[in-house]
Every structure is written in C-alpha cells, then in structure tokens.
Amino acid sequence: MYAVPDASPTPADPRGRIVAVVVTFDRLALLQRLLPVLLAEPRVAEVLVVDNASTDGTGAWLAGLGEPRVLSRTSAENTGGAGGFHDGMAWALERDADLIWLMDDDAVPLPGCLDLLLERDDLDFWGPAVVAEQDPQRRLCFPIRLPGRTRVVHDLADVEAAAVDGLIPGVVIPFNGVLVTRDLVERIGFPRAEFFIWGDDVEYLWRAERAGARIATVVAARFSNPATDDLGTPMMFGRTTYNHTPSELKHYCMARNNTVNLRTYRGAVFVLAFWVKTLWFYAFTRPRPARIATSARAALAGLRGDFTGHRRYLR
C-alpha cells in the first residue's frame, strides 16, 4: 500500500536543489515501496520517475498519483537503464537540480543515507555502501575491488576496515544511490543511452575519472539492493572472478559494452584479458558453448560500434 509521508521539502537546502531520479520497468510493487522513502526525505525537492514503457500499470499509477513532488514520464519504448538515466539526468538539469540522486526502482536508501552523503562537500560523484537486501549488516550487494588491491571483496567488514576518513576513495557503485553534481554532468554529459544495460554505469564512472572528478564511497551511508550470487563468480582456481548472469540480454550487453569500455579507457591488453576470461568461464567454469558464441557476436558488435544486437533478446 502506498502512503504519502507527512513531510515537506525545506525551502532552501544549503547544498542546493536536490532532485532524485528513479528509473523503473515493470516493477510497480517495488516502486511503490521506494517512493514513500524518498518522499520522507525533506531535502529532496522532487522525485523524477522515468518509466521505461512498463506493461504492469506503472504509467497509469504514476499518472494518478497526485503527489506534487513526484513527476513522471513514460517512454515510448524500453530504453534500458542506460536510456532511462540518460533521459532522467537531462530532465533533472531542466528542473534546475544542483545535485542529482540516482537509483533503480528495486533499491531503498536506509535511514540517514542521504544526510550522511550530504555531509561531504568535497566530492563530485559519490555514493553509499550498497548492501545486500538479504543480509544488509554483513554483505555487499556488488563485489568491489578496493584501491591498490587485487582481491575482490564481498563483505561489508572489509570495506569498513579499508576506509580512510570514512571513505573509499575512487570507488563508487554508479546509479545505486549515488549523488552527482550539476557541474560534473555539465562537464562530462549523460550516460550512453545506446548501451541499454550493463556497462553504462562503468562507462560513466570511467569518464568521470578521466575528467578528474572526485569520487568516493561514503562507508557509513547505506543503500539496500537485492543481491544475486552470480556476480563475482570465482574462476581460474579462485584467482579472479566473472560477472555471470543467466540472462542472455544482460550477458550480450555486458560482453559488448565491456569490450567498448575497455578499449576506450584501458587499452587492447585489457580487452584481450576480458575475452580470455569469458572463454575460460564458459568453457571450463560453467561450460556453455552457446554463451561463447553469443559473447563473440556481442564483442564484435562492440568493436563495430553496433548497438542494435541486444534487441533480439527483448521480450
């Protein structure tokens, strides 16, 4: 049941106008869970919801909501998270946002998250520790590689132990409760809409790095997101990990977009290493010859600059 909290925005926040952007697709119940949490934040001036052509009644529900702090747009077609955040961030600038708070529909900021993030005034692109909804006190939702280390960590305790002045510098999980300044968006632009899903967030992070953005995770701030055991699957006798997904759509986009990102920001050696890992994973770790063929098609499409191939997997 959706209920509007008894909260109203402050007339003028010292950090400027804060606008939340939510991208949603066919998860009305989760959106109905998230919106009251955002509306209970008095520092959020508006919540902009980008509905990616949902078919579950989301558009009609949003149209009849009648909450002045919530604005919504329903896309003519599903443009994926990449297209949704591209359009949502552009919309936020049109709405005079000074800070944009980005998130998907299935996540929830935990109490105090935004206030803890806003305590930092020395960052351009920063976010909370993203914890697994199933075990928020101990487990990260997305495994991360800490600065200066080769090991990927999954436990919140490892992140807390590595924090410097409450931060993990240079590390953030993009589009999961992150804040980005208007100045940075105006300098580097919007996410690449053609990526559709998987890799658009990494590309935006690496683009921000290249532009000299100040990036960090605020460890005390927490953001809950449903976790999957497939991310960070160990391979090569535990020496590294691979982001496996059972979804053909997600894998195709990941293989294509990761090829593009690595070639653009890291170089040919990293592209080759990614291809070797993909071949090894689906030949030995989880043998699936058909997935190797899909990976090859996606990687070649990325090298050609063809961002249409994922459409065959849409339903």
Rank of each mutant, 00 (worst) to 15 (best):
T55K: 15
V22Y: 09
R15A: 15
G16A: 10
A53R: 13
V21C: 10
D51A: 06
T24P: 04
E41H: 06
L28N: 04
Q32D: 04
L34K: 07
T58L: 08
R27P: 09
L34E: 08
G57N: 10
V23M: 09
V19G: 09
D26E: 12
V47S: 08
T24D: 07
V21Q: 09
V47H: 03
E41R: 10
E46W: 05
T24I: 05
T24C: 13
L39T: 02
D26T: 07
P14S: 01
V22D: 00
L31K: 03
N52L: 12
L39H: 09
V49F: 10
V47L: 02
Q32Y: 08
P42Y: 02
V37R: 04
A29G: 05
G57T: 14
P42C: 00
V49T: 03
A40I: 03
P14R: 06
R17F: 09
G16F: 14
A53Q: 11
A53M: 07
I18G: 08
R27F: 08
V44K: 00
V21T: 09
V47R: 05
V44T: 02
V44Y: 00
L35G: 10
N52F: 06
V23Q: 13
L35C: 09
L38K: 00
L39V: 08
E41S: 06
L28K: 07
V37G: 01
V50N: 06
P36W: 04
L28H: 13
R15H: 15
I18W: 06
P36T: 00
V49G: 05
F25S: 01
V19T: 08
L34A: 04
S54W: 13
L31A: 07
L28I: 12
R27W: 06
P14M: 08
G57Y: 14
V21M: 11
V47T: 11
A20S: 08
G16T: 12
V23E: 05
R43E: 15
E46K: 12
V37I: 01
R27L: 05
R27G: 14
A53K: 13
T55Y: 06
A40K: 03
L30K: 15
I18L: 15
N52S: 07
V23Y: 12
V47Q: 03
G16L: 13
P42W: 00
L28R: 15
V19L: 14
V23D: 04
E46M: 10
A20H: 03
L38T: 00
R43F: 03
V50Y: 13
L30V: 04
A45P: 02
E41C: 12
R15S: 15
R43G: 04
T24E: 11
E46F: 05
L34T: 02
A53W: 12
V47F: 07
R17T: 11
L48F: 05
D13R: 10
D51N: 13
S54D: 12
E46P: 10
D26F: 10
